[in-house]
Amino acid sequence: MIIMNYNMLSVLLAFIIMELYNLRRLISNKESIKVLITYVVITASSLVIGLLLAAGRRPASPAEWIQWIFKMIGVVK
């Protein structure tokens, strides 16, 4: 059974509303496709990671990847 973190979900919801509102402005400003794609990718990443965290399924974080790389190189023990 998945136990949801409702605080995290509320925070996520607030940000999503804000970003959807912003997306409307972005489209009306006639920004380039590059800008639109960047915006959507960042927003989607936040949403996916946020949902996983809310569901208590924390994926390996960038800090762990960075530490792993440094361990492989032999910089960090």
Binding site: F15, N29, V35, Y39, P59, P62, A63
Partner: peptide, 25 residues
């Protein structure tokens, strides 16, 4: 990205940063 106004990215970058802060450690 050549955006006309930098402000369009503020909320999505801050949101990503908040999620990252909770995820990273």
């Amino acid at each position: 990205t050549g955006a006309k106004d930098y402000r369009i990215f503020t909320s999505c970058i801050v949101a990503f940063s908040v999620i990252l802060s909770l995820w990273i450690h």
